[in-house]
Design a protein around this nucleic acid. Structure first.
Lengths: 345, 345
DNA sequence: TAGAGCCTGGACAACGTTGTCATATGCGAG
DNA sequence: CTCGCATATGACAACGTTGTCCAGGCTCTA
């Protein structure tokens, strides 16, 4: 390579720094800093010269250096299960809005329901020195976060509680919601009711199952093992689970679906049946009202979950909040037809 | 406040630094750096001592300082319209996956379709020195990005082209998709076909309208003004638009909906009509097949858009890519019933 | 045993910014 | 006219990391 063409390119591809601006404006470095940050003590004339230099060079303050100096990054991390899941869109957006109101940016990542990946993501975010974390946990042991929390990283868990540590958590009332939904089916005459849910290690799945069992017990109904199926929410498994409980020795007349992915698959299966099977799903979804019949659901407010969590996070950062708390948001039963079908045996 | 309780807390809330680790392990600063980064030239014994100190102190490298020194942040920004919109979930997730494969984190923000907010977000991301940007533009003038791009920020626009600057862009074939969808309706005997789309300043909306007009013209059908309605995709406006073209002097027998938000609202309106109106929507959505009739759509692959854009972005960073290019991904017509209904006048 | 060469480890500067502090300038009061 | 004060400005260190370079100790060979 010939010596001649050596570009003096620095790492940011030749970005001007405050020093460059200062040189061009014929002022000191600190004066530029003052102008950029709107600090007082600069003559209008000087300010104008500096501003001209900034515009001419296309200068943009390097926030990395600023963070290093100031210690706050004005960014928060959001770790969730899957950005593509419609449940997390509104939640994510709500967190973003609160962050924006506090002048913070949002960094987010999907754990894909893998505890290792969750930890990897969280620690990467901590290395960037995010001011706070909103975590929808995939794992059930969060002791790895202890040094971070001690070091001042505000942390709020959403949708599922933290494992092994004491931290803020914002949840939907899964137990109560499932109890209400199943009771609703019972009140419409059903006794053989199936439950299809997510993997039992997921807190919400376990809670919803508990709500189902409690509702059945409260009604004096003995639950048969074949009526319950927990596992991945992959359509193939859910379909098989649904078909089995519809065709077993004591076939169910109604199904309670543990989350919206399950509900959608169950809707498809029921559409193929000749008998009319009642259905209540946990979590609302778009177009639920347009299906035939409309799908009765136990709705949770994803945006409220996100908003509440982010609020608490910034209150932790303010210092307003001291002790970790567990907040449960209520669910709401929305009747649309599918949950009001009578038993057909 | 009494002098006594003054905590020696530094800005990160007392986070240990490499210096602290070095002191505790009784080694030099640079040796710690070597261990942390897995660089060679450290005896196993020294490494062990350093590692112990790291664990004992709960040390975590400060990436801000690292970034300052190295110049690459290993993070990319994604600016989209609304994270809560189901169309952007998969797109966002796809970008994230590609970023992850390159060891980068994703920072994202919603512009809420506001050009000022888009610019504000983009510049904030640039100030953080993201390595690259994936932007779904809200505005139509992106000259403000010129200094950034010149400074080496890799940039790819998605879903809509950049305004006033030459940059990489990845699009769906809106014109072709709309043309195909409308032609499909025509081939089923429709001649009075309505078009309801997004605001005309949005590129995709304009292109889809163009596709509609072209398809009509190709079939020798004169389009009446009352058959076309562009504007915000808010349900109230869309509903009124649909009702008007269904009840006007020459009422339409079919509607082409310009995006999924429009489609969903139109489905609701059509469900209330006594006549059967044909419908084709641009963009697929969950459960479209379960409605009665199933909704025929022109599907675009949001994940592929995101993946393609992110790929190009990292190829820009590699230096593999030189000239900006415009990539159009094909759409796919999925027939489900609603688009195959015959005209009923 | 002495010299060459390698390997390990550390001192130091630099990245771009902000906080602290000192200096220069101008102005009004005595 | 001089002193004192307020205001504008800049020099310098520090934030925590990494790259460069040098020193010291070891092994190996002649």
């Amino acid at each position: 390579m010939p010596e001649t063409a050596r570009r003096p390119e620095n790492r940011y591809g030749n970005r001007p720094t405050m020093k460059d601006v200062a040189a061009r404006a014929g002022v000191g470095l600190k004066t530029v800093s003052r102008v950029v940050n709107g600090e007082p003590g600069v003559t209008p004339d000087t300010e104008r010269r500096v501003q001209e230099a900034i515009d001419a060079l296309g200068f943009r303050r390097n926030d990395s250096a600023r963070v290093l100096r100031k210690g706050r990054t004005a960014s928060i991390g959001l770790v969730l299960e899957d950005l593509a899941d419609p449940f997390y869109g509104p939640l994510s957006r709500a967190v973003e809005e609160v962050a924006r109101a506090h002048g913070a940016l949002l960094i987010n990542g999907s754990s894909a329901e893998d505890p290792d990946r969750e930890q990897e993501l969280v620690l990467a975010l901590c290395a960037r020195r995010v001011d706070g974390l909103v975590v929808i946990p995939a794992g059930d042991d969060h002791r790895y976060l202890e040094p971070e929390i001690k070091a001042g990283v505000a942390t709020v868990f959403v949708d599922r509680p933290a494992g092994q540590i004491d931290a803020d958590v914002v949840l939907s009332d899964s137990y109560g919601g499932a109890h209400e939904g199943v009771t609703h089916l019972i009140s419409h005459g059903h006794r053989r009711i199936g439950f299809i849910g997510d993997m039992p290690r997921i807190h919400t799945a376990a809670e919803r199952l508990r709500g189902y069992r409690a509702a059945m017990e409260d009604a004096g109904i003995a639950v048969e093992d074949s009526w319950m199926s927990l596992g991945v929410t992959d359509p193939v498994r859910v379909r098989r689970a649904a078909e089995e409980m519809l065709s077993g020795p004591s076939p169910v007349t109604a199904i309670f679906a543990g989350n919206n992915r399950v509900t959608v698959t169950v809707v498809r299966v029921l559409a193929e049946q000749s008998r009319r099977i009642a259905l209540v799903g946990f979590d609302d979804f778009e177009l639920a009202d347009l299906l035939q019949p409309g799908v009765t659901v136990v709705a949770q407010d994803a945006a409220a979950l996100g908003r509440t969590a982010a609020d608490r996070l910034f209150r932790q950062l303010d210092g307003t909040l001291i002790a970790p708390e567990r907040i449960e948001l209520p669910t709401r039963l929305i009747t649309r037809g599918s949950g009001e079908l009578p038993p057909s045996d």
